[in-house]
Design a protein around this nucleic acid. Sequence first.
DNA 1: TTGATTTATGAAAACGTTTTCACCCTATAA
DNA 2: TTATAGGGTGAAAACGTTTTCATAAATCAA
Lengths: 331, 331
Amino acid sequence: MAALRDVAKKAGVSASTVSRVINRPDTVPTTTKSRVLKAIKNLNYHPNKFAQRLRSHNVDRKLVGLLVPDIQNPFYVDVVKGVEDYCFERGYAVLMGNFMQDEKKGQMYLEVMQSEEIDGLIVAPIQEHHKTISQFKEKKIPIICIDRGLKNIDVDVVLVENEEGAYQAVDHLVKQGHIRIAYVGGIPSIPTTLEREKGYSQALLDNGLNVDDELIKYGDSTHLSGKELTEELLQLKDRPTALFTGNNLITLGALETIHKHKLHIPGDIAIIGFDDMPWSISLNPPLSAVSQPGYDIGKRATELLFQRISDPKRSPVKVVLKTKLILRESG
Amino acid sequence: MAALRDVAKKAGVSASTVSRVINRPDTVPTTTKSRVLKAIKNLNYHPNKFAQRLRSHNVDRKLVGLLVPDIQNPFYVDVVKGVEDYCFERGYAVLMGNFMQDEKKGQMYLEVMQSEEIDGLIVAPIQEHHKTISQFKEKKIPIICIDRGLKNIDVDVVLVENEEGAYQAVDHLVKQGHIRIAYVGGIPSIPTTLEREKGYSQALLDNGLNVDDELIKYGDSTHLSGKELTEELLQLKDRPTALFTGNNLITLGALETIHKHKLHIPGDIAIIGFDDMPWSISLNPPLSAVSQPGYDIGKRATELLFQRISDPKRSPVKVVLKTKLILRESG
DNA sequence: TTGATTTATGAAAACGTTTTCACCCTATAA
DNA sequence: TTATAGGGTGAAAACGTTTTCATAAATCAA
């Protein structure tokens, strides 16, 4: 509760001097400085952020916004951790929003973040053009996109070789002798879903197989949708012998359905999922997966963000991280 | 960038009137009001939070702090979701801190939250008395504890019947004929670890078994520690035939070690974990677990928080939620 | 010495709100 | 009619900082 003026009074100086001690210590002689410093400590004085911010808009908020599509998805948890660790090292806090692929919710968070005047935003955008996100750009608030970029706006982005990753997984599957391989995708409107589908199709084509639309399913990137889509696939008269699943949660859902049908993996049906998980090895059977470096993605994004904060006019970069196909026993 | 005064000028009224339109609309006649409202919309005016807050300290921040020990732990993810959903419904944002059971990190977040003047704090405290958290209490910032309370301070708390939950699991294990049942615990200084151990011991005692210190292990509540502790247990000359694991991450670690040793579950060794997970059913074998209602915990905690925000002097309550033993195939 | 420069400091304005107070009206009561 | 009570409004102060500007004191050059 102690204010600047209290410190000033206690130290027998003016408010200006106290402010100088805090913000430009080298402009005030040591003797005065020490007196002020003592008073500050004595009164346990902390500058009021709101007053500071009101007066000079360019003081850092030490706050970065992070907007993720689904915190239940272990992949994003890794991203969050990467962001958080990096921020922590630099004394920044994270204002997190989990928008559940929900336009409204994302919107609300963006508004809050705007009015909180965050120093920068890291976001996995649900659409490639987004009005509110563009507002950030206009307001000169740095944005970093992960997982997918933004149309019409030039932003830094860190993403992963989705097509390549999918290709490798599916290619492996056909090399194992599978002919009917299904793709259980996520939300069809998001780029990652499409890119992975592209890799999937290309791998089939390159191996002389044709792509069968019946075997390509889209959902909403959740556990439940993984379950349901897999169910549909298993009902097919000519059912697939292998599944390539579009993300973590879908994979888990698929697994559940497969187990419900008492099918043997990979004997009856093989499965490779996009996204590895720390416990993939403890699944039944240990899951083969395309691993994305979630933690690194978060870390790189934050790195980029801080670079942009300190130099707003550098030209936007695109960081593409590699995926890794991890073969265990499911496919 | 439009400020109150711009709106005032455009609407041909004074700043006071604009402010009144915003804060106490019923005190200004409709004709004036609509003129002002139009100007607001026209200029896309948003009140500056910092000025608002500076001027009147009692305006809500619409910000709640959430401090969780480990976001990698799916249980806490559920809690986070519960908190977030409830906050979202009420137009509040969440300032999240993930302190990784790390004193320093937690401290830093608490400081940030203090200077951000959050409306309230939800925290799973690492120790039962915590100086900085007490400061919140002094500053009249509402606190809700989850998972464990605070010594010396009377706060609202929502927790789970840890002892009872553990008891049921272990009791079930001995009813299955197990004699040597180990407890793979988390950080020994946190109450949940101890309470679960108490339930474990009691169940043994009540069934006429004695508790063998050799079979009680403590670690740091992580995946890695689950792996290592289980390894130690398996090295014992008289190895346990069943494991009761103290949390999600530990369970997963234990599973990994058991699989590494090519042991059959539950044939060679049974396992029941504290905390259920959405994909427990897809584990090898489907995991039996003591399920905690993480989402509900988050929701209830937030409910309590809002109640306390609106009525700071109500007497603190303790909400105790039940656990549920879910039997699948691992024990 | 004197005038010019530098150093140390304080007074006051500004940031964008909310809120108190006082004012001027018009409508009502006497 | 005159006094009274509100209703509607604006001026100005306040919140706690930062920053500009001015001034006084101290240092320097001649």
